[in-house]
Simulated assay, not measured.
Amino acid sequence: MKRPGPLLTLLAGLVLGLFMLTLNATSGTKTASSSYREKSPSASPKAPAKTSPTPSVTPSQTPSPSKPPVANANYAGRTDDDAASVAVSVRDGKAVAYFCDGRYKEAWLRGRVNNNGSMKLTAPNGAVLDGRIEQGKKITGTVKDEGRPYTFTADKAVKPSGLWRATAKVRGAKIDGGWIVLPNGRQTGIVTRDGKAASAPRIDPETGAVTVDGQQLTAQPVTP
Rank of each mutant, 00 (worst) to 15 (best):
T29I: 09
K120R: 14
K39M: 12
A32M: 06
Q220A: 13
A43Q: 14
T79L: 07
R3P: 10
T26Q: 13
A32N: 05
S27P: 04
T192Q: 08
R132Y: 01
A127C: 07
M20A: 15
Y75C: 03
K138V: 08
V86N: 00
R91D: 09
G214M: 06
V181P: 02
V70E: 09
T192E: 11
P149W: 03
T140E: 10
A84G: 09
N116Q: 04
D82V: 07
R148L: 12
E206Q: 14
T29E: 08
G177D: 02
A107T: 00
G126Q: 00
P68S: 05
T62V: 15
Q61G: 08
P201Y: 04
G136N: 08
P205I: 09
S199D: 07
V158T: 15
V57R: 09
I133Y: 04
Q135P: 02
I203S: 03
V143I: 04
E38H: 11
K94H: 12
V210M: 01
T223A: 12
G172T: 01
V113M: 03
T153E: 09
A219H: 08
A154T: 03
G177A: 15
L18S: 11
P183N: 08
T223G: 07
A97F: 07
A87G: 13
P69V: 05
K67W: 05
E146Y: 12
T218P: 06
A168Y: 02
K156E: 07
A166Q: 06
K2L: 13
K2V: 15
T192N: 02
R103V: 13
P41A: 15
A173W: 08
G177N: 02
P224I: 05
A73H: 07
M119C: 02
S42C: 07
A83H: 12
P63G: 04
D155G: 12
A97I: 07
S56E: 11
A168N: 10
R110N: 14
A32P: 02
S42L: 14
D176G: 01
G102P: 06
R112G: 13
G17S: 06
A97E: 02
Q61F: 05
V86R: 00
K50S: 12
M20Q: 09
Q220D: 14
R171V: 03
T58I: 11
A71E: 12
P4E: 09
P149G: 00
G162W: 11
E134R: 14
S118P: 00
L18K: 02
V88G: 04
I190Y: 05
T79I: 05
P149D: 10
V88A: 07
R91Q: 10
L129Q: 01
G214K: 05
P41L: 13
G13Y: 06
L8I: 14
G195Y: 01
S35C: 10
G117E: 05
R91K: 14
L14K: 00
T167E: 15
W164F: 10
I175W: 00
G126F: 03
K67S: 11
S27K: 15
L8M: 14
